[in-house]
Design a binder for these strands. Structure first.
Lengths: 301, 301
DNA sequence: GGTAGTATTTCAAAAATATTGAAGGCCAAT
DNA sequence: ATTGGCCTTCAATATTTTTGAAATACTACC
């Protein structure tokens, strides 16, 4: 057979893995188990590999099966997106719009904009997700999202369009109960090393951990989003820089104090970014709306 | 119908576009034209769009058809690679290995290594291509190649493994007949502006042109590889920096002269780079062989 | 350790889908 | 106008997929 794999076979494979058995998958697909057996047998035969270990009752994926499943998923994804693109071509509205927010940005402004969009009752499904550090770029890169809010850092421009939305300002904070809350003068690098620091880890799965807090601390606690970092700081588990807009409220309520630190953290420009495909009407609307939104950052330009 | 597209339909679509007509595609696919009509009709029906404009004798793609074709191609590609990965899983040898060389690197060392590989008679098809500037990274990114030799510049590390192979040294050259060949002292920025410069353009399709020669010249001639640049320089069409190893031979034969220039061009480190998938035995072999090869660069480290 | 229950496969029959070839229409070039 | 090439339609045919019943094998539970 010239070409082994079919989307149908990949779908069946995915369902089997997802539902845990041929029988369950057959139910979900409104088919009969033997139909799945047939499809999988054929795929195995055509690929010349066995995809399942059938030595026991419950069929379990072989490494080859896992490989085909993993790569197959991205193919199925791409196929689904193809269908979406076609729909977009008709109305101009994309059926789905996936938006990621960098964890350093406040959630409220985004939700406000999303609310305004939903009120228009467009045929566009919105998905929101949160990314940290380079994760936002990666998500865009890998076509896991269509629009990123708050991406920053060394931007892999070129394949993306970007638009600055403001500058993130970081302040060094500790809990009022923390030893470093009471010391005199700016906190030194030496003092820092004496205390754990809280760091938001890169949400990228692929990257070797690259951290946002850069100082070398005796111990580092990694969390995967900014709210966790705020919590950890408030509890006095460690010290670290926070975006200013996160801090104000906590300082007011006495849960955190701002200190000066010898190792300053650069401000960085925050962007919205999207892929250089032709944007649907939904994406275009969001770009404008998000750019006009107040993100509680230092003014852009 | 739940899911419209099938790989088979995409293949047919691609063949029709490639061979220019239903009839020719049918021939190529060893089918009869009406079979293709049937497949395409079904795809159109399922997608709810017409893919061909049939108002005239020869069916021609509609914009929707073009869209499906373009996106479909990458899906077909991915499917083909899936099958290759499965084969790789058995023997360890990947069926195909696509290697890109940055145009700033000499071709000979690569060909030497490739020769040594071919002599081993492995079941691996090698494809070579040439990229300029960021094109190499993009090719890797987009999965158009598996291994890049000579990538440099701000490297989007993280999702790639890299290994330095040496430092590229650039020297400013002009033809002996060129007016700037005879001036006194280092060439100034002002003098530069008086003459066209030859620039290797980014081979990336997506990026807005980003050039490797950075000075502002009155006029810029863009070429897409280093050999063209050498030719253009030898002909005295303009001036520009060249990697040293390209220059030696031309200087010996009197076709170029080296001048000093006020706007120096930084050396940059050259890398081999590959994706962080599990490498096949072919890729592993090449990584070692290429790293051990003498690239006529300044020594790495 | 037997047994009921569940999971998968096998197989032949039935259903659905794809392919074929002949016929027809239409365009374009001679 | 005529001819030849290109695409579609349609009914017949071939192929592929689905089904359900029976067979086999494993698990877990008494």
């Amino acid at each position: 057979m010239a070409h082994a794999v079919t989307l149908e076979a990949l779908r069946v494979l995915e369902a089997i893995e997802q539902f845990g058995s041929f029988a369950a998958a057959a139910d979900a697909l409104y088919k009969v188990p033997s139909a799945l057996t047939y499809t999988m047998k054929k795929l195995e035969e055509d690929l010349g590999v066995s995809l399942f270990d059938r030595s026991r009752q419950r069929a379990v994926l072989t490494p080859a099966g896992r490989l085909v499943l993993d790569k197959g998923r991205t193919i199925l994804d791409a196929a689904a997106r193809l269908e979406d693109s076609v729909k977009q071509l008709e109305s101009g509205w994309e059926p789905k719009l996936r938006i990621a927010r960098d964890t350093a940005l406040p959630e409220l402004p985004l939700l406000t904009v999303v609310g305004a969009f939903l009120a228009q009752n467009r045929p566009v499904q919105i998905s929101l997700s949160e990314e940290a550090i380079a994760g936002a770029w990666d998500a865009l890169q890998d076509d896991r999202v269509d629009l990123v809010v708050g991406a920053s850092g060394d931007l892999p421009k070129g394949r993306f369009h970007t638009r600055p939305i403001g500058e993130l300002e970081f302040v060094f904070t500790v809990a009022p109960t923390h030893p470093l809350a009471l010391t005199e003068g700016p906190i030194t690098a030496a003092q820092l090393r004496e205390h754990p620091s809280i760091v938001v880890a890169d949400s990228t799965k692929i990257l070797p951990q690259r951290d946002s807090g850069l100082f070398e601390s005796r111990q580092v606690l990694r969390v995967d989003n900014m709210m966790s970092k705020v919590q950890a700081l408030c509890l006095g588990l460690g010290v670290g820089y926070l975006p200013r807009h996160f801090v104000d409220h906590e300082v007011m309520s006495g849960r955190l104090v701002i200190r000066e630190c010898e190792l300053p953290r650069q401000n960085h420009m925050s962007y919205i970014a999207w892929r250089k495909d032709d944007p649907g009407r939904g994406l275009s609307w969001f770009i404008e709306a998000l750019a006009a939104q107040d993100w509680q950052l230092l003014k852009a330009e």
